[in-house]
Design a protein around this nucleic acid. Structure first.
Lengths: 196, 196
DNA sequence: ATGCGTGGAAACCGATCTGTTTCCATCAGC
DNA sequence: GCTGATGGAAACAGATCGGTTTCCACGCAT
C-alpha cells in the first residue's frame, strides 16, 4: 500500500507482520498483495519463501531487541535493567494481538532447526541471553552464565503462557525473574553480594 | 498401518504423531494414508480437520501427563516429585525428535486461542499447573498458587529452549525449578518451613 | 441367498500452494 | 524521441489443500 519505501522494505515489513500474525504457512500471494509488490519482484529479491522467512525475521530482530532492552541511556542498576525486560514483555503480552515471542513461534512452526529461519531465531535468543549475561556480570552475579539462561527460560515460559492464554497473565514474569535474582543474591545495590 | 485398532484409534494415533512432527499444516491425505483409513471414514468420524486436531491432542493428553508426573506409587517428598517432572522433561528434550511441548506447539501454530485445539492445550497446561499446586500444598509452600504458575513457566521455557536448540540443553530445568523451590522455602523435608 | 452397514480406493470439486512467465506501464539518461 | 531497467498485473504450471462423492469389496445377521 505505502509506495514510499523500496519494494524490498515493504516486503520485509509485510512478511514480518503476516508471518507472525498468521504463521509461516501464509501464501506468498497474500504477502505480496499486502506489500504492494508483485510476485515477480519478490522472487528476484529473494530466492524462495524460506529465505524471505529468515530475512524478514532477521530484519525485525534489532527493533525487537530495542523494544525489550533498556537502552544505554538507562543507567539504573543492572538488576532493574534486567527486570525491565520482563516488565516490557508483560506489557506486550497484555495486548490482544500478542502471539508469543516471534523467534520461538517461528522456530516452533518451522520444526526444522536447520531452516534458515530457525537459525535466525536461535541467534536472537542467544542475543537475549547475552544481554542478561552482560547485566549479570555488571551486577557481580556468582554464576552469570547459568542465571542468564534461566532468565531466558523464564522469558520464553511467560511467552508460552501468553500464547495458551492461561490465567492470570500479568506480572508473573517480573516476579519470577526477581525471585531468581534474589535467590542468586543479585540485589538492587548492584554489588556482588552474600549468598552462595 | 496396524489394522488391529479401530479406524478411530488409528486415526487419532497417526494424527497425534504427525501433527506434532510436521505441524498442523499437514494434509488430511497424508494423515489418512499413515493411519490406513480412507478420507471418507475420517470425515464421518470427525466433523473437520480442526476437530481432529483437538481430539487427537486430547487423546494424547493423559499419556503425556503420565509420562511427566510421577505416579501415586512414588511416595518421595513433594519437592522430589516436582523436580522429577523436570528430570523427565530433560530426558524427553534430549531426544533428537523432541519438538517442544505438544500443547504449546499446537497453540502456537493455531494462533487462534478459541480454536478447539487451543482449548485442549490450555486445559492440559492448567492440569500441569494443578499438579504442581497439589504437590506444593503437600509441601506446605507459602504461596502454592504463584509458585505452581512459576514452575509451569519454567517448564514451557525449557521446552522453548529445546525447540530453538539453544546450547546447553541439559539439566537447566531441574536447576531452575530447584532454585525457585529453595527460594520459597520448599525443602526436601516436606514441611512448611521458615522463609518470608 | 439376501440384505445391510462398514470402510477402503479413488475420482472429483474449487480453492490455494510455490514458483515462473508474459506483457505492459513507468521513468531515467541521453 | 529513443533505450533500457524497474516493477506491477496477471496468466500459467503442477502440486496440494480440505472436503464430498461414487463405487465396490467385505462381514454379518437373518
Amino acid at each position: 500500500m505505502t509506495t514510499s519505501a523500496t519494494p524490498r522494505e515493504r516486503l520485509l515489513d509485510a512478511a514480518g507482520e503476516l508471518f507472525y500474525r498468521d504463521g509461516v504457512g501464509i501464501g506468498v500471494d497474500a504477502l505480496c498483495k499486502a506489500a504492494g509488490v508483485s510476485k515477480k519482484s519478490m522472487y528476484q529479491l529473494f530466492r524462495s519463501k524460506d529465505e524471505l522467512i529468515a530475512e524478514s525475521l532477521a530484519s525485525r530482530g534489532p527493533a525487537y531487541q530495542r523494544m525489550l532492552h533498556p537502552g544505554s541511556e538507562d543507567d539504573r542498576p543492572a538488576r532493574d535493567r534486567i527486570l525491565s525486560v520482563f516488565e516490557r514483555q508483560d506489557r506486550m503480552a497484555a495486548e490482544s494481538n500478542y502471539l508469543g515471542c516471534p523467534m520461538v513461534s517461528t522456530a516452533v512452526e518451522l520444526k526444522n532447526p536447520e531452516h534458515p529461519g530457525s537459525v535466525v531465531a536461535r541467534h536472537f535468543k542467544q542475543q537475549l541471553t547475552d544481554y542478561f549475561h552482560r547485566e549479570l556480570v555488571k551486577a557481580g552475579a556468582d554464576d552469570p552464565g547459568t542465571l542468564a539462561i534461566q532468565l531466558t527460560i523464564i522469558f520464553d515460559g511467560v511467552s508460552a503462557r501468553a500464547v495458551v492464554r492461561a490465567q492470570p497473565l500479568g506480572g508473573v514474569g517480573v516476579a519470577t525473574a526477581a525471585a531468581l535474582l534474589d535467590a542468586a543474591g543479585v540485589r538492587s545495590g548492584e554489588l556482588a553480594t552474600q549468598a552462595r
